[in-house]
């Protein structure tokens, strides 16, 4: 392969890797927004907690890596259920301004709790994968990157199937599209809220636990993740699952290619520029809510 094509292929691979992670995180955010009408500014903190708990389990408790990942997600989900039950369940009828302020407060609380528990040091989760990179015709990756891509892609597919095909997934979408008629067929909205919040937190925590192998996690990581997730969700359409998936991949690829072929200082600007364009010409996002 010629050098130009190799480099392009490398950029595309980087973009898909990061894009899958963006998509996974944004799916959770869009679900919480769509079902509960909550703009969850604490979403990135679930990612951060997923990473930290996985680190704690592997590094400090000596748990097997592959056992630690699902356990870390389960622990974060348990926390999300407690938060939903004690805070958000009471705010069902509250205006969005109130819930938004509550989620901002929650994000500060969780970040500082992590700071107290684990300190400000960035941590990488030790993985059993060999660190030696793999080369395919000059395009480099590592077993860990491939694992991340496989897990995030699989979770996106699983999430999508759960939402499209299962009874609970259909009930969620119905709640999403019209809460009143969902309640009238007997869907318990309280329970759907709890599922949506737990499911959203699970996806973010899974992303944090998996990516924590090569992107060090620290208490402040959550803020950046939340920002990226909102970019994706606005890009893809608030409350659209397909939009979150396509938007996540698009942002990942746009950042990779943009940074690859434009001055790298512009990398972050690309996502925001895309959002401004979308808001100007398609304020409902690329996809409607589904």
């Amino acid at each position: 392969m010629s050098a130009t094509i190799t480099i392009l292929a490398q950029h595309l691979l980087n973009g898909v890797l990061i894009g899958c992670a963006y998509a996974l995180i944004a799916m959770g955010l869009t679900m919480i927004f769509g079902v509960m009408n909550i703009a969850n500014f604490a979403h990135g903190e679930f990612y951060m907690l997923g990473g930290f708990v996985a680190f704690y389990l592997v590094s400090l408790m000596g748990l097997d890596y592959f056992a630690a990942l699902p356990l870390a997600v389960a622990i974060v989900v348990a926390l999300a259920i407690v938060l939903q039950h004690s805070i958000f369940r009471r705010l069902r009828e509250a205006p969005m301004m109130t819930t938004t302020l509550v989620t901002i407060g929650l994000s500060i609380l969780l970040e500082n709790a992590a700071l107290l528990l684990w300190g400000p040091q960035p941590q990488s989760i030790p993985t059993p994968f060999p660190t030696k990179p793999l080369s395919f015709f000059g395009v480099y990756t590592t077993p860990l990157y491939l694992f991340c891509m496989a897990v995030t892609a699989a979770l996106i597919v699983v999430g999508h199937v759960l939402i499209r095909r299962t009874r609970m997934g259909k009930a969620m979408r119905a709640t999403f599209q019209n809460k009143e008629s969902a309640a009238l067929v007997g869907i318990r909205i309280d329970r759907i809220y709890a599922y949506a919040f737990a499911f959203g937190a699970a996806l973010a925590a899974a992303a944090g636990a998996v990516l924590g192998g090569f992107i060090p996690v620290e208490p402040a990581t959550g803020g950046i993740i939340t920002l990226k997730a909102f970019v994706v969700v606005i890009l893809g359409g608030m409350g659209s699952f397909v939009g979150a998936i396509v938007g996540g991949l698009l942002l990942g690829l746009a950042e990779a290619l943009g940074a690859g072929y434009m001055p790298t200082g512009w990398k972050d600007a690309i996502g925001f520029f895309a959002v401004i364009l979308v808001l100007l010409f398609r304020p409902e996002g690329l996809f409607k809510r589904v």
């Binding site: 259909k170 979408r173 119905a174 599209q177 009143e180 009238l184 809510r289």
Partner: peptide, 30 residues
């Protein structure tokens, strides 16, 4: 409402309140 529909009262709401992005079959299933 969940408890009341389980007692046997169905409510066909004003303005139909269908779920626009779900199929006919999914409506009946739900």
């Amino acid at each position: 409402p969940g408890a009341i529909v389980r007692l046997g009262i169905a409510h066909c709401p004003e303005e139909r309140k269908i779920w626009p992005d779900m199929s006919v079959q999914e409506h009946l299933e739900l």
